[in-house]
Design a binder for these strands. Structure first.
Length: 474
RNA sequence: GGGGCUGUAGCUCAGCAGGAUAGAGCAACGGUUUCCUAAACCGUAGGUCGUGGGUUCGACUCCCGCCAGUCCCGCCA
């Protein structure tokens, strides 16, 4: 059997901007992927972007109305305009019945492969992709785009197969599967709609086609042994329904696993959904830039206080790593199930369970390494002494790493690694505080340098697994 | 009405497969710098783990009821 794990994460929508909700999916998905890669799995990171569906009808119709039929000018539109563009289209769709009618026709055209419609669709996707890629590059996220449109050729056979297996029921004009153990408001069994009454498909259809494809053997499949979906917990019901139907249809082979990894909302310090003062959704790009700006401000203040001089490059790089690391760590260190309060002040704080604290600990260790004159790979570096209480505690903490990784592989909770890291840093900082290193006699010094080295390696590896870059100095 | 998730110190949260006096951080108060980056370390104070039952030698942890908050529930994703 294959050892391929598919992690489905990030998944923004075309013509919409990425926001903090996508950030959670992106960061958690990336970290889970990294941990599975470390454990020797073949990991396929998939970006299930919303690049198909009814919204494209209105977008393309709007596009044709505004830019005539040659569609050349759209190449100059920027994403923030595209978001405006989306809003305007939506407004017209909601208010103009004639526009709505043309939009619906446009969806059919697109889905049947009309050349002009496809061209317009591609233009829209390319615009969005540029913007998404910039964020992924900034965050150092590797992900493969395979949007909803990819599964378009397989949608019809989903319906056919469900029909064949006599699972599909027609109700109020729509084709659906009734779910066990779930009721609607009237107390009747809840349907999962697979085909709308107008004949169109929806996200349940796409998700089912995706499950089939991902478990199938090549050429028309990925032969995955496990699929992991990282989305907000608002979609829990949807996935429970989709998984149930996939099981009924026997599309999930024996010994394969499928998991929804839900996460809570990102809230402001007021406990409500994170918004700008004007009540608008905060753009992910702005949020990341703000974190880096604040990190830079802190750094500059410290350099001034300590009368230090650093190059422009050092300042830019250090603030970027601290700022982005702080955002990632704040998110990952929470139990993903619960909502969490987003606070720049807390995540960038130099104390407590934050990225700057962890990065600083590593910097301290590397400082020792720079000032010592031993060669690390010499034969002398075998000896470890653990007479002092803080040495013993550090050794015990270092040995726990494997156990933590195994538990995350099982339960998909990256916050446990954060917890471990924080404890490791606390333990190290006590050791650092309580025992001298460089001025000790040879054997003791070697032993303690060894412990420092092991701690640094563990810290680096752990931070890497969280997708956080490290620094030599800060 | 049905279902999901949450409810642990003033605040933000850990507590994984049940095991000893329930742990951190922040905030508050006090202390430590001839020494490797003090962005550190040490100490004090602070909790009937929402509530009522049950299972168990033993429950924050498992099961059931209730209360509160939040999210989802037919053609958006």
């Amino acid at each position: 059997m294959s050892n391929k794990v598919i992690v489905d994460f990030s998944s923004p929508n075309i013509a919409k901007e990425m926001h903090v909700g996508h950030l959670r999916s992106t960061i958690i998905g990336d970290s889970i992927s990294r941990i599975f890669e470390l454990r020797g799995y073949e990991v396929l990171r998939l970006n299930h972007v919303g690049d198909w569906g009814t919204q494209f009808g209105m977008l393309i119709t709007q596009l044709k109305d505004l830019y005539s039929n040659d569609l050349e000018e759209i190449g100059n539109i920027k994403i923030s305009d595209l978001v405006e563009f989306y809003k305007e289209s939506k407004k017209r769709f909601d208010n103009e019945s004639e526009f709505q009618k043309r939009s619906r026709e446009e969806v059919v055209k697109l889905q049947s492969g009309d050349i002009k419609s496809i061209k317009a669709w591609k233009l829209l996707c390319d615009q969005s992709r540029k913007e998404f890629d910039e964020i992924y590059k900034n965050l150092k996220i590797k992900i493969e785009e395979r949007g909803e449109s990819f599964y378009n050729p397989f949608l019809k056979s989903v319906i056919d197969d469900l029909n064949l297996k006599k699972i599909l029921v027609e109700d109020q004009g729509a084709k659906c599967v009734f779910l066990d153990g779930m009721n609607n408001k009237e107390g009747k069994p809840l349907p999962l709609i697979i085909q709308k009454k107008d004949g169109g498909f929806n996200y349940a259809t796409t998700d089912l086609a995706a499950i089939r494809y991902r478990f199938n053997k090549p050429p028309n499949g990925d032969d995955a042994s496990r699929i992991i979906y990282v989305t907000d917990h608002g979609q829990a019901n949807h996935f429970a329904g989709v998984f149930q139907v996939a099981k009924k249809a026997k599309w999930i082979p024996e010994n394969r696993q499928i998991d929804h990894v839900p996460f809570g909302l990102v809230q402001g310090i007021d406990g409500k959904k994170l918004k700008t003062r004007e009540g608008e959704t905060i753009r992910l790009k702005d949020l990341l830039n703000e974190a880096v700006r604040r990190a830079k401000e802190d750094l500059l203040k410290r350099l001034k206080d300590e009368d230090r001089y650093e190059t422009k490059e050092f300042i830019a790089n250090t603030s970027r790593i601290i700022g982005l690391g702080a955002v990632k760590y704040a998110d990952l260190s929470q139990n993903r199930i619960t909502n969490y309060q987003f606070s720049f002040d807390k995540m960038l704080s130099l104390n407590g369970n934050t990225a700057p604290y962890l990065l600083y600990t590593l910097v301290r260790i590397l400082g020792i390494k720079r000032k010592n004159d031993f060669v690390y790979d010499s034969k002398d570096f075998q000896y470890v002494n653990y007479e002092h209480k803080s040495e013993w505690k550090l050794i015990r903490k270092l040995l726990k790493f494997d156990e933590v990784i195994i538990s995350i592989e099982k339960d998909l909770m990256p916050n446990r690694l954060c917890n471990y890291l924080f404890e490791l840093c606390q333990t190290f900082n006590r050791f650092y505080d309580q025992v001298p290193i460089l001025k000790e006699e040879k054997n003791i010094k070697i032993s303690r340098l060894n412990l420092c080295d092991l701690t640094a390696k563990t810290l680096k590896l752990s931070l890497e697994l969280l997708g956080i870059e490290t620094l030599e100095r800060m």
